[in-house]
Design a protein around this nucleic acid. Structure first.
Length: 626
RNA sequence: GACCUCGUAGCUCAGCUGGAUAGAGCAACUGCCUUCUAAGCAGUAGGUCACAGGUUCGAAUCCUGUCGGGGUCGCCA
């Protein structure tokens, strides 16, 4: 049943008949709430063909539709707007047909294979709020695509190797005194703790040296970098240079000294040992990463997300080199005199990009070329979605273009789900300044807030402690997830740690509440209504709720197309609000007319089912009572 | 400097493939629980859609410029 589609066809044939004209697309809009009608057709573009004023044109088309279409009840014209009222029995027939269809809004499988890669953490630090946005988006998009008929693989590409991991390892070796997570601290937090210890030690070690270097005294620095430092210092001390340029030089001096400090050199040595397969280093690495995985696992479980496939950079970081070789002989890449390998993407409005260092080792993008190929080989993907922050927009533009140049069949199916950063009132979260919002802490806070609010409302009666805890956990998670997912993924969003996330208004708990309230009604409704016929006439609120329900399949389709759970959030709110209006204006259980009672209960049941599906697509778990 | 992106109510966000009088929620104020869960419903107030031009029947939406925020331009990931 496609009301809109049918109506569009009717309009198209009316236009042909009346004015011997057609439109490339017949556009229908939902009628503005202030006017009577369900759908609105705008006639302004037709005035040239009709040679009549807007009102007359709209009226003519309206007449035609009313005569020929069995789905049009009536119409009215306001200026150039033709408002069409659909016959009411269309809505009640829709209700009767679909209210109990468990597959409503789901699409039959096209079987297209898609991988959604999300989370993809580093193993040297615990997860924070930024990761949470990534994780929730990835999980929800994967679920949405499943519901629209894709075969989805959720993947996590763990960055488990590299200099940052070695920092944690080295600090633990030096200052750890054998500390393990068994002593209480969660594994990922333990690795993070030593990462911070390393950074602090590095700062302590280099502070004085940097200070001296900034005033031209290079004692204590590595002899190898002194010429470079002298060069930078010349820029810094030249009064003719702009402050901006000086600032850059200053930063570079700091970076250079840090990177060549004894501690960093030791760290780099550790990385070399790791790559060379030194058993002691490997053992430490495995142990520490193991702790981190155990820690992540707890957080993932608590968030209710999962993965079908794990990739580890320690396994994949050397991939891609073969493909570079292949592309080199195919002329896609070129080699510079120093031996480094590049691609020229200036034709696409991008730049030259290095794909292999002069020493033949991989860079970040080399790995990504390799894993793209690996993913395709593993699964024969039609689509591959990367949930990664928008700071990497350029990287993915380049990556996708490279895959195209390499003639990879899957290149066209690669998408970057580029999401905005989560900002604090003070700006970006910075780990160096300790402003990151830790994921585990946040989840604890959400739980505590849920408890507080529930007690405030006096809704704890009749529930055991265990059941209450489960409720608090679900409520807190719902509030957090909805808060994050209702914002358009592309946009950056603000989180204010000093204000708790709302539980009232446009929130996850509001949607949960509406669902629980319906469940309560249905528990008391008894039997019989399921098989009773529905009423032919509907109240405005009932019709509005049905219109909302009717739109669900399209909303779901759009959410999958745009990779936007925010559309599902918006839909769930619209539906919940529409139903709550019925609930407050009309009686369900006490309605005496059997057909009207059945109508309302079926709408209630249909709404509950649709809300539940929406919540689940967002990773929110419904509750039967709250 | 170049490129990308954002700027809508006090705050957080919708609306952006051009359509009617720009919408929600929070915060503020007013009503509604001796009928089904008040985490609800109804209402009041709150706007130079950053600014200036342009395109056209019509612009928050498209184009250009200006201002402001963020990001990217690593042989880091």
């Amino acid at each position: 049943m496609k009301i809109e589609q049918a109506l569009k066809e009717k309009i198209a044939s009316a236009l042909l008949e009346l004015y011997q004209t057609s439109l490339p697309v017949v556009k229908l809009e939902k009628t503005n709430a202030d006017f009577e009608g369900d759908y609105t057709f705008v006639v302004f573009p037709l005035l040239r063909a009709s040679r009549k004023n807007p009102e007359q044109t709209a009226a003519e088309i309206g007449e035609k539709l009313a005569l020929s279409a069995e789905l049009v009840h009536s119409f009215n014209v306001v200026k150039g707007f033709l408002n069409i009222v659909i016959r009411e029995n269309i809505w009640s027939e829709f209700l009767q047909k679909e209210w109990n269809n468990p597959a409503y809004a789901l699409s039959p499988g096209t079987g297209k294979k898609v991988m959604v890669e999300y989370s993809s953490p580093n193993t040297n630090k615990p997860l924070h709020l930024g990761h949470i946005r990534n994780i929730l988006l990835g999980y929800s998009v994967a679920e949405i695509m499943k519901a629209t008929g894709y075969a989805v693989t959720k993947a996590n590409l763990v960055n488990d190797r590299g200099i940052h991991i070695c920092k944690s390892m080295l600090a633990w070796q030096r200052f750890g005194n054998g500390e393990t997570p068994e002593n209480g601290i969660k594994g990922d937090h333990l690795a993070g703790k030593y990462y911070v210890i390393f950074e602090n030690a590095l700062r302590a070690e280099t502070e004085e040296v940097i200070k001296a270097a900034l005033s031209g005294d290079f004692t204590g620095t590595d002899a190898a970098i002194q010429p470079k430092l002298a060069e930078l210092y010349a820029i810094l001390s030249n009064p003719e240079n702009k402050e901006e340029k000086k600032e850059k030089a200053r930063d570079e001096i700091k970076e250079t000294i840090r990177n060549h400090s004894p501690l960093m050199q030791e760290c780099q040595e550790m990385l070399r040992q790791w790559e060379a397969g030194n058993p002691d280093v490997l053992h430490l690495w495995k142990t520490m990463n193991g702790w981190v995985y155990d820690g992540f696992d707890v957080t993932y479980k608590r968030l209710g997300v999962d993965f079908d496939k794990w990739y580890y950079e320690s396994n994949t970081y050397t991939l891609g080199k073969d493909i570079i070789e292949e592309g080199l002989s195919a002329g896609v890449f070129y080699r510079r005199d120093d031996g480094s390998v590049w691609i020229d993407l200036t034709a696409e409005g991008l730049d030259h990009k290095l794909v292999l260092r002069k020493d033949g080792t991989s860079v970040y993008i080399t790995q990504d070329i390799g894993t793209a190929e690996l993913k395709y080989r593993d699964y024969g993907l039609d689509q591959s979605i990367y949930v990664v922050g928008n700071e990497q927009d350029y990287h993915f533009k380049v990556l996708f273009q490279i895959m195209r140049r390499l003639g990879r069949p899957y290149a066209e199916g690669m998408h970057h789900l580029s999401y905005g950063m989560v900002d604090l009132p003070s700006g970006k979260m910075k780990s160096r300044e300790g402003t990151v919002v830790d994921a585990d802490d946040l989840l604890d806070e959400m739980h505590a807030t849920a408890r507080e609010k529930t007690i405030e409302l006096g809704k704890t009666e009749g529930l055991e402690e265990a059941a209450l805890n489960e409720l608090f956990e679900k409520l807190g998670l719902a509030a957090l997830k909805f808060f994050i997912l209702k914002v358009d993924p592309k946009k950056r969003m603000l989180f204010n740690p000093s204000e708790s996330i709302d539980f009232q208004g446009d929130t996850g708990p509001f949607v949960m509440y509406t669902y629980a309230r319906i469940q309560s009604v249905l528990r008391q409704a008894g039997e019989g209504w399921q098989s009773a016929p529905v009423a032919g006439e509907l109240h405005t609120t009932e019709k509005e709720t049905l219109e909302c329900l009717y739109a669900f399949p399209e909303v779901l389709h759009n959410a999958a197309r745009d990779l936007s759970p925010a559309l599902i959030c918006q839909y769930a709110l619209d539906l919940a609000k529409a139903f709550n209006r019925i609930y407050s204006e009309l009686s369900l259980l006490h309605e005496t007319d059997p057909a009207r009672r059945a109508t309302r209960l079926k709408i209630a049941s249909f709404t509950a089912q649709s809300l539940k599906m929406s919540m689940n697509l967002l990773g929110i778990k419904e509750v039967e009572r709250m």
